[in-house]
Amino acid sequence: MKIFLNGMQTQVDHTELEAVLVQLGYQDVTIATAINGDFVPLSQRKHTQINEGDKLEVLAPMQGG
């Protein structure tokens, strides 16, 4: 299934968000997620389904003013 990860079309093999994140290299890291513009808390990643064409945003700490 193809989704958009941070704006880039990406192939994923799972439908559960937590499994998708592991597949994409986000294991044991400090990130926050949103699907189609809606925040998905850490506690909900296991229970959140991701669908074909969904826009997944994965954000992490970055320099800011």
Binding site: G25, L59, A60, P61, M62, Q63, G64
Partner: peptide, 22 residues
């Protein structure tokens, strides 16, 4: 100290190193 959030690549995980510094 002010900080921000930006897209993180699963490849380089650049934000993690910054967060450790802070």
């Amino acid at each position: 100290v002010t900080v921000s959030l930006r897209r993180e690549s699963g490849g380089d995980l650049a934000g993690q190193a910054f967060w450790q510094i802070i």
